[in-house]
Design a protein around this nucleic acid. Structure first.
Lengths: 337, 337
DNA sequence: GCAATTCACTTAAACGTATTCGTAAATAAA
DNA sequence: TTTATTTACGAATACGTTTAAGTGAATTGC
């Protein structure tokens, strides 16, 4: 192992001080153009690489942001991360990714391991099992944080979300217009803003169209996949709904499977639609009607705001957009031919 | 902003030296149990958090590994990352994720920004556009690296891969047994080991079963999605294959779409199978026969080996397993009923 | 009983960079 | 010419941690 090349090496070689080298590398105005060129040239020649730890320690900046999401293996989040990453790359920032697997203790542990200067800022979409906001309240005081998609209403912070109420309302309306009268709802994220608004949109659409709702029509998500599947199956057997709205992508696959198992035809016996960013939605059997969120753009927006915070720019509430989801109608909710 | 609590704060408060505090926090045997307890107690009380930059700088360890993949929004890679992340979390390591988007220049830039001590080790699955191994050769000399799934044959490093040859061979055989005689191949990764072996398996199966091959049956992947789609469409029109093997997940969706556009029935007119980890494969129309790689386990294995390297343990070639993919037969390749 | 060892702790020096402050020379202003 | 300002650089320090080396006291060995 040859000796590491540091600013000291460059300084020695060029007969200047390490301060000069450091300033030259940071393109300081205090250094003449000729000296800068000399330094840069030698740095390139000796393949000098700035030591990030030392730099971070001194400057108290890490050029790194953290992204905390429930799960990467989820089309919405992987697309959102793509959006975040695009913005981060433009600013030469590194991206640290953490998955909570919907576990709020892991979530807390992650955030706590981050506040002490490992990252400059955090982008987070909170876990479905999180029900207390106190931890996040103290977090946002310590470090720039932007929430995306999943947030809690009593936290005063920047949140980039979608029009969950509107899109759930619209989706329910779509089913009603196609003749459904007994619409079930697969519920998740009910502790979060996101989930609450989606349910409310569903409720209000039912009410405004004079449809009744009974508790049995609501099935909640369980971390245990089999449980979720069985709940959906029971729903289909007992309530015999003519439509199902899935509030999350993870519940629509078991819904399809349950229909298959019970020999129920989609959309003839039961129509199904789901909040989803599945790339294969159009190719499913039958093709799935989705409420698709602009995942990539949400990532971009959220990252954009985080960088504004890092730049100490003031952000007004009005400039934070509510992103628009789109209802893509496909065969799984089509009316009778 | 209140003053940051550092080892110095703790030392002052307890009337001991900062060395004692540091050692106590690191559970050094040089420190008495009582002192350790006192330090830990105060650290907890004052919410002391070790500064990672300072720690990294001094100890030359970052407790961070990098994962470089072509794309997160790909079932295989997101699952592999899950496997990696599981192992990393057990060791309290952080995971930095980089996407190359199949661009080898971005790939090079990333690796170069990492060698100077930002991470302790790298897990990488190389981009399809990478054709020179020279850069990686120098990389593995500087920092522990483990390749997974996608590797180049002339690099001497640890590689966790699957039985690409075997599974492509078996898949081709499956189609031949179901009566196919004119089997097309959607090729990707042809510069990498992975791709080469898959093609070879396909070739050998054809040859061993006395089937001919013509160049027209091979369609190569293009970064431009429309181009890929059109190439597949042309293939179907001109060559009229009775089966298609897709060597990557990204090409099977356009294949399905092309069939739809041309009114070709799957599997009656053309059978399709693909290397894929799509969670919705069973729900597609028709359900898709896949060669599914043990993505999660590959991630685990690769991360395991990286940590062995970090622990300076010697790794013998024999202990590196070749992971087994599995051919899951579904409707898209079923024979006539 | 005295040397050798162990114990528990301290001193001091790193790790590599960024930055404040100082300064000598060069230039501009008066 | 004298003074003020700018330019281009250097000395020194700080960031917060880890660790090699050293130290005095207590314990052990023979």
């Amino acid at each position: 192992m040859t000796e590491n090349v540091t600013v000291k090496t460059l300084a020695r070689e060029l007969n200047v001080s390490i301060a000069t080298v450091s300033k030259a590398l940071n393109d300081s105005h205090e250094i003449s153009i000729e000296t800068k060129q000399k330094v840069l040239a030698l740095a390139k020649k000796l393949k000098y690489e700035r030591n990030p730890s030392a730099s971070n320690l001194r400057s108290q900046k890490t050029k790194t942001i953290a992204v905390i999401v429930p799960e990467i293996a989820n089309s919405f989040f992987s697309l959102a991360i793509n959006g975040i990453e695009e913005i981060a790359r433009k600013r030469d920032y590194h991206v640290l990714i953490y998955q909570t697997h919907e576990n709020s203790e892991i979530e807390t542990a992650f955030t706590e391991s981050l506040v002490c200067g490992r990252v400059d800022g955090i982008l987070i979409s909170i876990s479905s099992s999180t029900n207390s906001s106190s931890h996040f309240k103290s977090l946002v005081k310590k470090i720039p944080v932007v929430f995306f998609d999943r947030a809690l209403d009593d936290i005063d912070a920047i949140k980039v979300t979608t029009d969950d109420y509107q899109s759930a309302y619209q989706a329910t309306l779509h089913l009603i217009e196609n003749g459904c009268k007994n619409i079930a709802y697969l519920s998740a994220l009910s502790k979060l803003d996101t989930g609450k608004k989606r349910i409310q949109g569903y409720f209000d659409a039912l009410k405004n169209k004079g449809l009744s709702f009974n508790k049995g029509l609501m099935v909640t998500h369980d971390p245990d996949r089999d449980k979720t599947y069985n709940r959906i199956k029971n729903l289909l057997i007992i309530q015999k709904p003519d439509a199902i709205i899935s509030s999350v992508e993870e519940m629509v696959i078991p819904a399809y499977n349950a229909c298959k198992a019970l020999d129920l035809r989609i959309p003839d016996d039961v129509k199904i639609l789901s909040f989803s960013n599945l790339s294969t939605a159009a190719l499913l059997n039958p093709s799935l009607t989705t409420i698709t969120q602009p995942a990539f753009e949400i990532g971009q927006e959220a990252a954009g705001f985080l960088f504004k915070l890092l730049d100490k720019k003031y952000i007004t509430t009005e400039e934070i957009p509510v992103m628009k989801s789109v209802l893509i109608k496909r065969d799984s909710t089509s009316g009778h031919t």
